[in-house]
Amino acid sequence: MKKVFEPVELKNLSVKNRLVRSATWEGIANPDGSITKESYEIYEELAKGGVGTIITGFTSVALNDYYFDGMMRLCDDALIPEYKKLVDIIHTNGAKTISQLALGAYYRRTSGGYEQVEPDEMTAEEIALVKQQFIDAAVRAEKAGFDGVQIHAAHFFFLSRFISPAVNHRTDSYGGSVENRSRMLLEILDGIKNAAPSLHVTIKLNSSDFTFGGNEEEDALEIGRLLDKAGIDSIEVSGNGTSVGGIKAHVNEGYFVPFAKTLADNVSCPVIVVGGFRSLDVIEDVLNSSRIELISQSRPLLCEPDLPNIWMQDKSHISKCVSCNGCYRSDSHKCIFRNR
């Protein structure tokens, strides 16, 4: 029987419990990707709160990624000391940490500056550049002491768009079939495994694009199988259109669980699932009625960063998060009800 608060051994990663803080956007980094004092404080509070693993917020692999303001970045060796400080803060407070490596969009330099380029228009050289950016960022993460990296291929950011037939209409080896559209993911995975072998390498995938002409669950299942065969260390299941409102404990928790259970039955690597968990007994039931190994949360840990510690003392406690999504409209994405 799986227990939430028990140590778990994964490839290159030993964690103290099965609870994961899913990567959560903060938007408060400096323009060069360096870390602010507030960010250090956010992650220190999370680590002290008892979660076993923290996946850091969206961390771009490129300096000329203009998709968001306030992105953390691992695009320059000069940033490594700042990220090492972040890792040390998290480790000192008892959690392991994974850097979520991402690209909002690919931007091509033009005479007037930069323009966003979709997968169909990218040259072979540009595809190779993006792959190398992910690999180089993983090497920096390893040097900074991160326990792992997460390849962000969900939520319709660059990699999610690249693997989606709603966006990718290429006719070369990077387009067409699911295997061809997934080629970039597999090559990034292989490159990271070779360049930074000490890291746990996970990936965040949509269970569905929920978009006309996009990946459906059968496509996502095939992508998961391809990644598993290629040696991915774990897969976190999400979806294109996250943060569902109106979540109530014991009513509609775990909205990505059905697909995650199917995926877990079809791959050998551990599966993590995010999406609307509010009660410990539901989490325990999901873990023990499936091959899912870990549960990740975002909004509840914005509302109560110490939720894991609370659950260790009171198993009946229900998350105070009311799924209003006000956090995503607030500065640094903090719960709007905290400290009121």
Rank of each mutant, 00 (worst) to 15 (best):
1 M>P: 06
4 V>N: 10
7 P>I: 10
10 L>P: 00
12 N>Y: 05
14 S>F: 11
14 S>K: 15
16 K>T: 07
16 K>Y: 01
17 N>S: 11
22 S>K: 09
24 T>W: 01
27 G>E: 05
27 G>I: 03
30 N>I: 04
32 D>T: 09
35 I>L: 15
36 T>A: 05
37 K>A: 04
37 K>E: 15
43 Y>C: 07
45 E>W: 10
46 L>E: 12
47 A>H: 05
52 G>E: 06
52 G>R: 01
52 G>P: 08
53 T>Q: 12
53 T>P: 00
63 L>N: 11
67 Y>W: 14
70 G>A: 07
72 M>D: 01
72 M>R: 03
73 R>F: 01
74 L>N: 04
77 D>P: 00
78 A>V: 11
80 I>V: 14
80 I>K: 04
80 I>M: 07
81 P>T: 09
82 E>L: 13
84 K>W: 02
84 K>S: 12
86 L>R: 04
87 V>Y: 09
92 T>I: 00
96 K>L: 05
100 Q>D: 08
102 A>K: 02
102 A>M: 13
106 Y>P: 00
107 Y>V: 04
111 S>M: 12
112 G>M: 13
115 E>Y: 03
115 E>V: 08
115 E>C: 06
116 Q>G: 01
116 Q>H: 06
118 E>W: 14
119 P>W: 09
119 P>T: 05
125 E>F: 06
128 A>M: 06
128 A>V: 02
128 A>E: 15
131 K>I: 06
131 K>C: 01
135 I>M: 04
141 A>E: 03
146 F>N: 00
146 F>S: 01
148 G>F: 02
149 V>C: 12
155 H>T: 07
161 R>V: 03
162 F>W: 07
164 S>A: 07
164 S>D: 10
164 S>R: 03
165 P>T: 13
165 P>F: 14
166 A>W: 06
168 N>D: 08
172 D>S: 10
173 S>F: 07
184 M>H: 12
185 L>N: 08
189 L>W: 09
190 D>T: 14
194 N>C: 11
195 A>W: 12
201 V>L: 10
213 G>D: 10
213 G>L: 13
213 G>F: 06
214 G>K: 05
214 G>Q: 11
219 D>Q: 10
223 I>Y: 02
224 G>R: 04
229 K>I: 13
230 A>T: 09
238 S>C: 03
239 G>H: 04
241 G>N: 12
248 K>F: 13
254 G>H: 07
255 Y>A: 02
258 P>H: 07
262 T>V: 12
262 T>M: 10
269 C>Q: 05
271 V>T: 10
271 V>M: 12
274 V>P: 00
285 D>P: 00
286 V>S: 02
287 L>D: 07
287 L>Q: 11
292 I>D: 00
292 I>R: 01
292 I>C: 00
296 S>K: 04
297 Q>D: 03
304 E>H: 09
310 I>Q: 11
311 W>A: 00
315 K>H: 14
316 S>D: 15
321 C>I: 02
322 V>D: 14
326 G>M: 08
328 Y>N: 11
332 S>F: 13
333 H>P: 00
339 N>Y: 14
